[in-house]
Simulated assay, not measured.
Amino acid sequence: MSTGRGDLPDLSYFLVIARHLSFARAAVELRVTASALSHSMKALEARLGVRLLHRTNRSVTLTAAGEQLRDSISDPLRAIDGAIEALNRFRDAPAGRIRLNVVVDAARLLLAPVLPGFVELYPDIEVDVVASNRLVDVVGEGFDAGIRYGGTVPEDMIALRLSRDIRWVVAAAPAYLERFGTPGHPRELAQHRCVRLRQGAGRIYHWEFERGDEELAIDVPGALTIDDTDLGLTLARGGAGLMYGPEPVFAGALAEGSLRLVLEDWAAVGGGYHLYYSSRRQVPTALRLLADHIRERRPLG
């Protein structure tokens, strides 16, 4: 068995594969090919003289030796990463790469307005954004942080507010309202056509309303179900039905008159967008700088 400092890159690769249990997903995070990862792991196993991974066409699992190696090297390699990250304060220009898992609307409303200015300020920082409405384990899937609505942030995470609270409203095209009328109470939605929303976990979202002390959650009817805001806006503009969502999503359509708000006195208010990350990991300098940049630019107030 021959090992040495040259094994460090392969050991780092091994930890990412062990976390994802997938060469393909690990390759995406590491920005190498799955084939290159496979060759690296075979070479590492040959040098160590033990098999670390069981591979089939459909799955990757750790051997007993692989589990022991993962448990033994996770903390030391994390400490090395932290030590290298700490050197950022001595650089003339901060550098690094941050991976974010972001709810889709936040990517468009919160990140898109500020990222051009951020990369102009910090050209040596790379930002990798995965926009998804599916709630993921950001630590387990190799992200530095996530951005979600305040009420959906996992409780064991540190959360940093990035925007004001957000009103959730209902909008429709003028042509739809002329044809079918304007609902005056959320329960009247039962007689309307609605564009239903599917949450990241696959559950159909019940539209939430509040007025004074009264709170309602309505399972609205509708022949159309979506999980994409841009598609919903196109459908609503075309008169397909009433649409529910965060008020900033509708700003452009409301300004141009292609949509109007209804049931405004029943608008529910939810927690704004929050950045969240694990308390067990050192916060990368690049992530802190991005959070500061968003809070300074205040794209949503």
Rank of each mutant, 00 (worst) to 15 (best):
E296N: 13
P113I: 13
L15D: 00
F209H: 10
T3V: 13
E85M: 06
R97T: 14
R47D: 03
R97L: 08
G82V: 12
D71G: 05
W266F: 15
V136H: 12
L162E: 02
R25M: 04
L160C: 15
E215C: 04
T152D: 10
A65M: 11
D292N: 15
S258Q: 12
E141G: 07
T225P: 08
A172N: 03
T234P: 02
N101P: 09
M243V: 14
S35G: 10
G184L: 05
L261D: 05
G239Y: 05
Y277C: 12
V32Q: 00
A26T: 02
L110D: 00
R164V: 14
L11W: 06
I147D: 02
A131I: 03
H39F: 05
F250S: 03
G140A: 14
T182K: 08
R25W: 04
A286L: 01
V153L: 07
A106G: 15
V50E: 04
H274P: 05
R179M: 10
I218D: 01
A240C: 03
V269C: 15
A24S: 13
D292W: 14
I125F: 07
A173H: 06
A65H: 14
R97K: 08
V130E: 11
L109S: 07
M41C: 07
L216A: 05
P221F: 10
G245Q: 02
G146P: 08
L62C: 00
T234Q: 11
E126N: 08
I17S: 00
P284H: 04
I294G: 02
G142I: 06
A65Q: 12
R298V: 02
A190L: 09
G184N: 03
L197D: 01
L53G: 03
A223C: 08
T33I: 04
M243Y: 15
R5C: 07
S2F: 14
L8F: 00
L115T: 11
Y273K: 05
A223R: 11
F143C: 09
R295I: 08
A267K: 09
E178H: 03
A173D: 04
R295G: 09
F23P: 01
H274G: 06
Y244P: 02
V130C: 10
V195L: 15
A106H: 12
F118N: 04
I73Y: 10
D7F: 12
A106L: 15
E178W: 00
E296I: 11
R298L: 02
L231R: 12
